[in-house]
Design a protein around this nucleic acid. Structure first.
Lengths: 310, 310
DNA sequence: CGGCGTCATAAGTTTTGTTTATGTGACCTA
DNA sequence: TAGGTCACATAAACAAAACTTATGACGCCG
């Protein structure tokens, strides 16, 4: 059974005869007879009573007619769905990212996209960096936005933001108010750290190791907001991406101007990187998302620095 | 877009690659590539990301996958529906008939069919004889059961029953108790007649005309039950098919042993005829109905005579 | 009875689909 | 970094459809 056969069949019924159907189908009558015969042979039932004054459908014909119309309609719907995709009116955007980026950077980007493409359907997968990479490689997501991702020959890396990871302390801390501290001053201090599974946690650990500074890790958590809170209450100092300490409010809604950034030399930075497959082909909507992502990335630094923290 | 292309497409997705799909489809890989390319070209969108380690569907591919599965499933359902038809488990029986036959003869036949084929779906169209013929000729019904139908070269006529149309009178009528009356005794009598549109009404009219008897028509109605009732209350005599006066109860549930048949010579008969198209091909269920019809027809006379009315 | 309308059949042609053989590009291993 | 492998693309020859033209069968209708 083939779709063009069903179309032939429908035409014969709707036009009420083989000869009349040929004009609609733009084929000759023997061709049509042949196709209908194919159908009948395959189904093992005749579909039409051949009567002197034209045809009339048998019961099998009537039953098939219902189903055939339905099938053709579904095909039409499939066509339309794909057409709407390529026209960019709808589109899924499957994003993989890590917590900090997902919380502090992505939301405004998605908001912009939603304004421009109301029918866009972004889905965000929050995982640890490695898992997001896996998801990208197995095509569970289309794009990944990661911090300091591990290189991979198959993938394309495009740095969106290069931001500082700064030392932060609470208002009551001895460092408070100082413009900078020396690395050796950190030695042995109570320290709040991101777990090493997070790229930034690892980054900070390597950084301290390279400086030859060992600190007293009093809290270790995978969640940046937890780190921030611990610092707020004065449990220790920490390194946090500027992103986290630049937002007006944290993700739980409380203002976060209770902590202060202090400069340490040499400074520590991390890169927010857009990762896609090499030769990544995508629809209009995803493309628009990428553009939006780049634009926001370019304006990020300015945005952060226009809201300096004491 | 063709069904075999959709099947190819589904296989590629489900098997996770072109090469793997070939084993399921029993075609070679270039053939498969070709078919997928056809689809992609027609839809104007690529359906797969071709990646070094196999493929993954694009968004268009994912969308099409949903729809394609649905389409294939509908086709499968169509196949099954037609299969059930030819296996005789289901089947529509479109019957056209006139009132008297429909009321007094058809019900037990349909009951038997329903017992043997619980999923049979008989639909009965009650019309005047000519209209039923029209319906048969335009294939709105499959079979017609008519009284004395007009011949037609295109159709096949098979007499099922040949029954008497007897003179009937009420219990209080002078004819009551007599075994027979002479035609001339009817002259001028109050008479209930079926309208001439009904085959039996026409039959009776011609019969009386041939006998040279003119009666006093006090009621004319297309409904046999109305005639019966009028006779019951003694408004006049009438000719009614034995069928009508042999049932234990009339269609309104009341017993009808309030009237009596009286013999008139020459006797008047009508034929209940099964009408179908010449070379009528039908499914098992309709065939069973026809057999049942013939069987009941053959046993009708015996049935009627085993319940004689005084 | 002959002309007409409608579908079926036959034979030849064109289009489509398939196979075999080979190419391309990226990964993997040494 | 050369060579093998995997997975899909491409090319050309071939096979199988679908289509067209021409003709036939059958019943209607004047």
């Amino acid at each position: 059974m083939e779709l063009h056969q069903l179309k032939c069949f429908i035409a014969v019924i709707e036009e009420g005869g083989f000869n009349r159907a040929t004009t609609r189908l733009h084929i000759t009558q023997p061709a049509l007879s042949y196709q209908i015969k194919q159908l009948e042979d395959e189904l093992g039932a005749s579909l039409f009573h051949r009567r002197p004054r034209g045809i009339s459908p048998t019961e099998a014909g009537r039953v098939l007619f219902q189903h055939a119309q339905d099938v053709i309609e579904r095909v039409r719907q499939a066509r339309r769905a794909i057409e709407r995709l390529s026209k960019g009116v709808v589109g899924e955007i499957r994003i993989g990212t890590v917590n900090s980026v997902g919380i502090y950077f992505l939301p405004p980007v998605l908001q912009k996209i939603k304004e421009k493409y109301p029918l866009a359907r972004p889905t965000v997968m929050y995982r640890r960096g490695g898992e997001v990479m896996e998801a990208l490689l197995s095509s569970q997501v289309d794009v990944a936005v990661l911090a300091n991702p591990r290189p991979d020959r198959r993938l394309n890396f495009e740095t969106i933001i290069e931001e500082k990871v700064s030392l932060v302390c609470s208002k009551g801390h001895p460092f408070f108010g100082r413009t900078s501290v020396q690395p050796h001053e950190l030695r042995g201090l109570p320290f709040i750290s991101l777990t090493q599974e997070t790229p930034t946690g690892m980054l900070v650990k390597d950084y301290l190791a390279k400086l030859g500074v060992s600190v007293d890790v009093v809290v270790s958590t995978p969640n940046v907001d937890t780190v921030r809170k611990m610092v707020e209450v004065g449990l220790g100092v920490a390194f946090l991406p500027d992103m986290v300490t630049s937002a007006d409010v944290s993700c739980d809604g409380k203002p976060i101007d209770l902590i202060s950034r202090v400069e340490v030399r040499p400074s520590l930075t991390r890169k927010i990187v857009l990762v896609t497959w090499k030769k990544f082909q995508c629809g209009q909507v995803v493309q628009a998302f990428l553009d939006e992502l780049r634009w926001h990335g370019g304006h990020w630094k300015a945005c952060v620095e226009s809201r300096p923290r004491k």
